[in-house]
Every structure is written in C-alpha cells, then in structure tokens.
Design a protein around this nucleic acid. Structure first.
Lengths: 138, 138
DNA sequence: ATAATTGCTCTAGTGACTAGAGGTTCAAGG
DNA sequence: CCTTGAACCTCTAGTCACTAGAGCAATTAT
C-alpha cells in the first residue's frame, strides 16, 4: 500500500494526472486512509503502467477505457482490442504522411531564404502568402 | 467589400474560426456596416489566405502573430521569419520521428494478434500491460 | 510536539477551435 | 414598401488531456 506520490514516482505519471485519470474512470485507488488519502496496491501500479504505455502510444482516454473494459471481461473476443490498435495505427500513419508532406514544404521554405535579406522581400513571407508555390495541396 | 460568409467560402476557413482569429489579433475587418456586420476587402482576403496556409503548415497562432508583425515592418531583417520557419521544421521533424517509432510498435501490436483469441490471452492487451516487450523506449 | 512534507478538493487556464442560445440585420421577392 | 428567410451578431460553454494554484488537512520525521 503506497501513496499517490509513491505511485507517481514509480510510474512516471504526475500526481495531478493520476487524479485526473481517476476522474475519467481509468484507475481508482483500492482504499483511502482515515484521513482520506489515496492508498494504492500492486494491481493499481500495473494498471497505471498499462495506461501510461497506451497514452505514450497515442491512444485516447476513450480508447483506453475501451481496452480496460476488455481486460475486465476476458471472455469477450480479442477482436475489439485489435481493432482499437489497428485504428490507432491507421491514425498514426495518416499523421506521418501529412507531416512528411509539410516537412517537404517547410524545408523549401526555410532554405529559400538565407536570412540576409529584408522582410519586405522575404521568401518565407512571400511563400506563405502565395499558396500557388506549393507542390502538394494541403 | 464582402461579408464574413463570403470570406469563409473563398478561403475555406469557417466563420467562427475567422471570428476567433479576429479575437486573437490575426485579422480585423476594414469596417463594419451600420448594423455592425463585418465587411472585408481584398487585403483581408489575402491576409486570411496567409494565415490559413501557415496554420495548415502547423504554425501556432503565436508564431503567425510574429510573422504578421514582420510583414507590418518590412524594414526588419528576414532572419526572424526564417528562424520561425526553421523552428517549425525542427518541430515537424521531431514529431515525425516520434510517430515513426510509435508506428513500429503499433504495427507489432496489431499484427501479434489475429483477432480470434479471447481477450484474456490477447497479445494487444498483454503488450500494453508489459512495457518490457517494447524495442524502443518512449 | 512540532515542523516539513505530502496530500486533499475545487476552480480555472491552456490551444485552437466548435456548438448553441437568443437576438439583429440584410437581400430578395411580392 | 413590406415581409420573409438567410445570414449575421455577441456571449457563454464545451472539447481534449492535462497543468497550475488556492486554501486547507493529514502524515512523517525529528
């Protein structure tokens, strides 16, 4: 049985975030002290590890709630968990694609100007003002 | 001179967003009608195009405010504009790197399970619970 | 016993919008 | 000229995943 501070230190999740997760229904402490302080056990430690890992992978709180519901009903098929993971993967891939396109344009933008001119004829500002110069459409 | 609705249609920026940008100090209409409705001209159209383009490239409202300040003082050197663009590029590259790492892990996650087992022995849930199985650290 | 640390709840702020309520103004047709 | 309906106005609150701070209570160490 340990305090919220100890849990925070062990998992690397900040104290207010743990309390926020509790509010969102992700982890509740097993019990409280007489003075109303949260006391956690090993299962909560593992649960929070799970949550942190999923958050690091970009899963939304809502998606994690779904995964937790699956953990709590291990008789359900695994399809749902895999679907959540696949959706997340698709999301990440879409983001990568978009960011890569932006990288290309920003690169041209940043290289077009050596930084020695004056802003009145700055390539960066001109390029931002004139979308025509873009290769990809966004 | 055209209305906010016409401006929205021409630029593809939604009406509430235009009003929000005005609140943030990005674009103000030249004038208002007697009945207090916004009326925009060509300069505002171009300004909003600039803003949209920069937002599409991931620039923050704050960064765009900086760029606009440069436009308004064309005597300043171009260095600042380039610096803002370079910072944005670095940011985008960092995000791509992080997302690519996540993509790898998510891919393993989603492929480890064919979706036919039961959640009690689901690879997705197990992998999320056990960070040890990860290759990269995040 | 006391001081230092840690904990509690509650409210409000972040960024970049989006949604809705409740009311006003404009443009077009009759 | 008048009415109708679309578009407009302001203002407040909600989104997501936290983060910060106020003001107070409990625990721990000395």
């Amino acid at each position: 049985m340990f305090s919220i501070g100890a849990l925070a230190k062990r998992t690397g999740v900040k104290i207010p975030t743990i309390r926020y997760y509790e509010q969102m229904g992700l982890i509740a402490p097993l019990e409280r002290t007489e003075g109303n302080q949260r006391r956690y056990g090993r299962p909560e430690l593992e649960q929070l590890g799970f949550i942190k890992h999923a958050r690091d992978l970009g899963f939304s709180i809502d998606a994690i709630l779904g995964l937790i519901a699956l953990q709590d009903h291990p008789d359900r098929t695994c399809v749902e968990a895999t679907e959540i993971a696949r959706a997340q993967l698709a999301d990440v891939r879409a983001k990568i694609a978009k960011l890569t396109a932006l990288e290309g344009e920003l690169n041209r933008l940043a290289q077009g100007c050596n930084g020695n001119g004056i802003a009145g004829e700055c390539y960066v500002l001109a390029a931002l003002a004139d979308h025509q110069r873009c290769e990809a459409d966004h």
